[in-house]
Amino acid sequence: MSQERIKVLLAKKKIDVHGRGTKLIARELRDAGMEVVYFRFGVVEEIAEAALQEDVDVVAVSIMTSGQMQVARELIPALKERGMTDVLVIMGGIIPEVDFEPLRELGVHRCFPPGLPGGVVADYIRENVGTATLA
């Protein structure tokens, strides 16, 4: 069993019912050979706690009903606090492009706009996993 697999925590808000995009990404990453923990969170701390216990390489957050800035402001420190400093953090969904740069400054490595062709997210993860740091 000496096969390493990229493990992704795919998180979306529990109260958000827009699950099609998340499930699509979940399937895409699975088909790209990754292990995807599908997870709906109530509070942001839960994402960090799950990332820690599951020891994931990537935390991906789906945002369909805004709140991305607040999630990032809480998530990045929560991950760092737990010693998860080498995890790749990405976001996707309905995020205004004007927020991409502020989110990057908060520590989110990459935001994906909607409507991308299949495979873009998986390719990005494969290229950047293991090199990211939460400085």
């Binding site: 697999r5 979940a26 839960e46 706690e49 799950a50």
Partner: peptide, 26 residues
């Protein structure tokens, strides 16, 4: 593909959120 969709945690976390007495691993 060798990939996996791990969905168990999603249903379990309700009872354990923020509780350091619970450790769940998929």
């Amino acid at each position: 593909s060798g990939g996996a969709l791990l969905g168990d945690r999603d249903r379990m976390v309700e009872s354990s959120s923020g509780d350091s007495g619970v450790f769940i691993r998929s």
